[in-house]
Design a protein around this nucleic acid. Structure first.
Lengths: 188, 188
DNA sequence: TTCATTTTTTAACATTTGTAAAATGTTGCC
DNA sequence: GGCAACATTTTACAAATGTTAAAAAATGAA
């Protein structure tokens, strides 16, 4: 059990003692492709670690659905507003493949944060890494054209290109699917 | 001294004991309008809290300068990449008015994180709040037109509209200054 | 395989936003 | 006040991206 946790990069900074403490609260779950594991407008009481599979987070607009995040094996996955503010979130999370996940109840995790210094710092680093990645995306939108963003996406996430529908990638990159098609046609 | 810290909202969650610990390492500094207190490509060894004044963070592009963050009284202020990854950052931070700041050396702050549970969780919450705000901006760019983003900016940051040059606000909103002028002309 | 469904591409046209340059407005200093 | 430096708006035109619709290609289930 601890072995399984230790193999996931996100837990690398934790000692055996903390891994044991954490493991007490970890539950394994499997879901089918297409499952919506986090729903907008509901407080999601769990924090997930994606062991296998691919997930996307999206918001519902009027005529459109905006995908703004992809998760792969080893990524953590949670409703931002539930986790951070204990309020209903704005995002849905859909599994794009049959997936296996670990989950911890937020209440248990928060209680670990209040008692275990190492886990509190682990939680801090998770938020920090997500923060720096999100900010870089925001800055990239200003400096780089859609074509360049697409090329970087391919370079950085070759797995996702193979396994995720282009319509989702288009909205992740901030363009319509028509524009993404044009970009792909141009760089052939 | 502790009183001064207690009046700043970002410290509200800290007990007297932790405030005392933190206060040992806090130094007060003043800078003039126009001072660049964080420079891209340098590791910035301090973490700042802006007591008075306004700051902006920006990246240098080839022909342009992109402003992606504004700070006001009470906001924390740090080089993301220095703080998070101990690497040179990508952002400059300029003070747009004469300002007074508190600063703590990152080494001291990190050492507090490793010894004081309450401060570790305080650092976690700071990263989380920045994260949720940044992600909301990214999503807003997809769902809202430039005009709507401008109106929301006015509603949420009335102080900044009065005190910050429009060219900086335009780039913060993700449009050129010409486009912002057109938006302003249209909604008169 | 075959059919139905979904995804992706292509085309034509509309709209938004960008670029460059000039005009106007504002600020601060001598 | 008057000048210089900088900020903002306006104009004309160019480029990028969006919209709509239809065709082509890919996918999945019976």
């Amino acid at each position: 059990m601890i072995e399984k946790l230790r193999n996931i990069a996100v837990f690398a900074s934790l000692s055996d003692g903390s891994l044991h403490e954490l493991a007490k609260y970890v539950e394994y779950v499997k879901h089918q492709k297409g499952a919506i594991i986090i729903r907008a407008d509901k407080v999601e009481p769990n924090f997930f670690i994606l062991e296998n599979g691919i997930a996307r987070a999206y918001c519902n607009g009027e005529n459109q659905e905006i995908t703004f995040w992809f998760g792969q094996s080893g990524n953590v996955l949670f409703s931002f507003n539930s986790y951070i503010n204990n309020r209903p979130g704005y995002e849905n999370v859909e599994l794009l493949e049959n997936s296996s996940l670990m989950q911890i109840r937020l209440n248990d995790l928060f209680s670990l944060y209040e008692h275990n210094l190492e886990i509190a710092n682990w939680g801090r680093k998770i938020a920090e890494q997500e923060l720096i990645a999100t900010e870089k995306r925001l800055i990239d939108r200003a400096f780089k054209g859609a074509a360049e963003r697409y090329e970087e996406f391919i370079a950085q996430s070759p797995e996702l290109i193979k396994r995720v529908a282009l319509k989702h990638i288009a909205s992740y990159l901030g363009v319509t699917q028509v524009t993404l098609s044009r970009i792909r046609a141009a760089c052939k």
